[in-house]
Computed example of a mutant assay.
Amino acid sequence: MTDDYVAINRRIWDEDAPNWVKMGETAWAGDPEWGNWGAPEANLRLLPDDMTGMQAVELGCGTGYVSGWMARRGARVTAIDVSPEQLATARRLADQHGADITFIEGNAETTGLPEAAFDFAISEYGAAIWCPPEAWLTEAHRILRPGGQLVFLGNHPLSLICAPENGAPADRSLHRPYRGMWGADWTRVEIEPSGICFNLTIGDWFALFHRLGFAVENYQEIYAPDWADHTRGSVPADWAKDYPLEQVWHLRKV
């Protein structure tokens, strides 16, 4: 892993920002859906139904639609992202939808936000995959109030160890070790190079949560729906019907 992952990922997301505008516009206008195949909120329940009066923060907000969903539910929302180009879209869409959201350009590992200031924190991809887990989870724990909730969605470890090292779509072989996994550097792969992502084994996730002071309240594995018939996020639908593409952790600060 290179020490320049923050700058690399910022550049990747700045350059790719125009490709996410249409998706952001659609998500802002719609109801909450999660992950590569749009799992409905009614099935996963990542957000509290009523967030009236809650202080909420999104860590790695991209175009800001998750923050928009929380504001619509009554939360007072702060959102942080490392990419100024993504934030430009987020701010425009917040204005368009009349959402009063505080957007901050910065690193979710060192937000600069006050200690114990938030009731609820969330990351859909964002910090959940683009920051080293111990770094961003330590910061999330710091800014949450005692009893505060953290929910995050990212790639399942299986989707990484089944991903060929040349960047080709995931298949049914194991291409890298599970033990000691940290993530992957996709900057120099042959097929669709991108940034540097992070992940852990399930056991290492649990050990990290315990060490930092998070209790696990729920864990969900997300598969492709029966109707899916194409590749998303470099994962073929047929693979993701048999193996989980994504995972959701529901934590609470002890």
Rank of each mutant, 00 (worst) to 15 (best):
residue 1 M to P: 06
residue 1 M to H: 07
residue 4 D to V: 10
residue 6 V to K: 15
residue 7 A to K: 15
residue 7 A to L: 14
residue 9 N to A: 06
residue 14 D to H: 03
residue 17 A to G: 03
residue 20 W to G: 00
residue 20 W to D: 00
residue 22 K to T: 15
residue 24 G to K: 04
residue 25 E to P: 05
residue 26 T to V: 13
residue 28 W to S: 02
residue 30 G to R: 06
residue 30 G to I: 11
residue 34 W to C: 00
residue 37 W to H: 00
residue 37 W to Q: 02
residue 39 A to T: 14
residue 43 N to A: 07
residue 46 L to G: 01
residue 49 D to H: 06
residue 49 D to Q: 10
residue 54 M to N: 08
residue 58 E to T: 06
residue 61 C to Y: 07
residue 62 G to Q: 01
residue 64 G to L: 12
residue 74 G to F: 13
residue 78 T to Q: 02
residue 79 A to T: 11
residue 81 D to H: 10
residue 82 V to T: 13
residue 82 V to N: 09
residue 85 E to P: 00
residue 86 Q to S: 10
residue 87 L to P: 04
residue 89 T to P: 01
residue 91 R to M: 14
residue 92 R to G: 07
residue 92 R to E: 10
residue 93 L to H: 12
residue 95 D to N: 11
residue 96 Q to P: 00
residue 97 H to L: 04
residue 99 A to D: 11
residue 99 A to E: 14
residue 104 I to A: 09
residue 104 I to S: 06
residue 104 I to M: 11
residue 105 E to C: 13
residue 108 A to N: 07
residue 109 E to Q: 14
residue 114 P to I: 04
residue 115 E to Y: 11
residue 115 E to P: 02
residue 118 F to E: 01
residue 119 D to I: 11
residue 120 F to E: 01
residue 121 A to E: 08
residue 121 A to S: 15
residue 121 A to M: 05
residue 121 A to V: 10
residue 123 S to Q: 04
residue 127 A to L: 04
residue 134 E to A: 12
residue 134 E to Y: 12
residue 136 W to I: 06
residue 136 W to V: 02
residue 137 L to D: 01
residue 139 E to W: 04
residue 140 A to G: 12
residue 141 H to G: 02
residue 141 H to L: 03
residue 144 L to N: 03
residue 145 R to G: 00
residue 145 R to D: 00
residue 146 P to H: 15
residue 146 P to A: 14
residue 147 G to S: 08
residue 148 G to S: 05
residue 156 H to N: 15
residue 156 H to L: 08
residue 157 P to V: 14
residue 157 P to D: 10
residue 159 S to Y: 14
residue 160 L to I: 15
residue 161 I to Q: 06
residue 161 I to F: 14
residue 163 A to H: 15
residue 164 P to F: 10
residue 165 E to Q: 11
residue 166 N to I: 08
residue 167 G to E: 11
residue 167 G to F: 12
residue 169 P to Y: 15
residue 175 H to L: 04
residue 175 H to E: 04
residue 176 R to G: 03
residue 177 P to I: 06
residue 178 Y to L: 15
residue 180 G to H: 12
residue 181 M to S: 02
residue 183 G to H: 10
residue 184 A to V: 09
residue 189 V to D: 09
residue 192 E to W: 06
residue 195 G to T: 09
residue 196 I to Q: 08
residue 198 F to G: 00
residue 202 I to S: 04
residue 203 G to C: 09
residue 206 F to A: 09
residue 209 F to Y: 12
residue 210 H to F: 09
residue 211 R to F: 03
residue 212 L to N: 07
residue 213 G to L: 03
residue 213 G to Y: 05
residue 214 F to L: 05
residue 214 F to A: 00
residue 217 E to Q: 07
residue 218 N to F: 05
residue 218 N to V: 04
residue 220 Q to D: 09
residue 226 D to F: 08
residue 226 D to M: 06
residue 226 D to L: 09
residue 227 W to K: 02
residue 228 A to T: 11
residue 229 D to K: 07
residue 229 D to Y: 10
residue 230 H to A: 05
residue 233 G to A: 13
residue 235 V to R: 12
residue 237 A to Q: 06
residue 237 A to D: 08
residue 239 W to A: 02
residue 240 A to N: 06
residue 241 K to G: 02
residue 243 Y to L: 06
residue 244 P to L: 13
residue 247 Q to M: 11
residue 249 W to R: 03
residue 250 H to P: 03
residue 251 L to M: 08
residue 253 K to V: 10
residue 254 V to L: 02
